[in-house]
């Protein structure tokens, strides 16, 4: 049994919000360089060059790589042998976001009511939290700020089982095609297949936490990832939608068993500002 105080959680989340927005992952930078070498369009190569420079400026000056510092999405995996003391865990995660966005000069982009009262909450909360209770005595927190240029381009389809693999692939490719320039390509395509409606959507979002290009563990699904990537990059959209061969840097698929009558497919597109940072808190002995 371990005890973790919420003060520690708040401090950790505060830092994760800033780090995620300032420091693009090495995996993404590597992917930019690979894409720049492979891109056929001169305009596309130029865009990738600016993105590499942008990430560098953000890192050195410790400023957000993109002004849309996103809705803060948190994945929390709580070991069942952990006791959280202080305030409620949910309140602590929100407090961490509040502090991180204030101290980090990050943009506050959350409105109170989605439709009736679109007033800014002023502190970028509430945050969207996905909890998982897992074996063990640690708390793993991942902060993944998501901009809405790309989030708005996501889609979900309750496919029929008879649509088969081709149905899944076609839906993903169509979704990327429709999104065009809006989600700031080059993108990462997150795909969730199976479960029920909300499970598919969460799988798609969760897949974006992987390092760019890290494959699904199942060799059959790896092939599907490669096939979708090939098809998406044939669309011609290119970096920023100016035309080119490097529309997506990677396709990440996650799956879950589903009902005999269904095959839900969710697509969550991540922009090149693919942000996620994680920490594992170990607490102290009870």
């Amino acid at each position: 049994m371990k005890i973790i105080h919420t003060d520690e959680i708040i401090a950790a989340v505060e830092k994760l919000c800033m780090d995620a927005n300032y420091f693009l992952g090495e995996d993404m930078l590597q992917a930019f360089h690979t894409a720049q070498a492979a891109e056929q369009s001169p305009l596309g190569q130029n865009v990738l060059g600016i993105l590499i420079e942008n990430a560098d400026i953000a890192k050195t000056e410790q400023v957000p790589m993109c002004q849309d510092t996103g809705m803060a999405v948190i994945f929390a995996e709580l070991g069942q042998e952990v006791q959280v003391t202080g305030m409620s865990l949910t309140e602590a995660l929100n407090q961490g976001v509040r502090q991180g966005y204030a101290k980090g000069y990050l943009r506050k982009s959350i409105v109170k009511d989605p439709t009736l009262h679109r007033d800014n909450t002023g502190d970028n909360t509430p945050t969207v939290i996905h909890y998982d209770i897992v074996p063990g005595d640690q708390l793993k927190i991942t902060v993944a700020p998501k901009g809405f240029g790309s989030e708005n381009m996501g889609a979900l389809k309750m496919c029929k089982p008879s649509d088969g693999l081709e149905g899944v692939i076609n839906f993903v490719v169509e979704t990327v095609d429709k999104a065009g320039a809006n989600p700031c390509p080059p993108i990462i395509v997150g795909v969730g297949v199976g479960g029920d409606m909300e499970k598919a959507a969460i799988l798609a979002k969760h897949s974006l936490l992987r390092e760019a290009g890290e494959h699904n563990a199942d060799p059959e699904w790896q092939k599907v990832e490669a096939e979708i990537l090939r098809r998406v990059n044939q669309l011609g959209i290119g970096p920023q939608g100016f035309g080119g061969t490097q529309t997506a840097l990677a396709v990440h698929i996650e799956t879950f068993p589903t009902h005999i009558a269904g095959m839900p497919v969710a697509v969550n597109i991540n922009c090149h500002a693919a942000r996620h940072k994680e920490v594992v808190l170990t607490g102290r002995d009870a």
């Binding site: 600016i50 993105l51 942008n54 400026i57 790589m65 993109c66 849309d68 240029g149 700031c184 920023q240």
Partner: peptide
């Protein structure tokens, strides 16, 4: 005109 989406730090300069 299209500016480079997501190049917020670069454009700020």
């Amino acid at each position: 005109f299209a500016a480079i989406g997501g190049a917020g730090a670069y454009i700020a300069r």
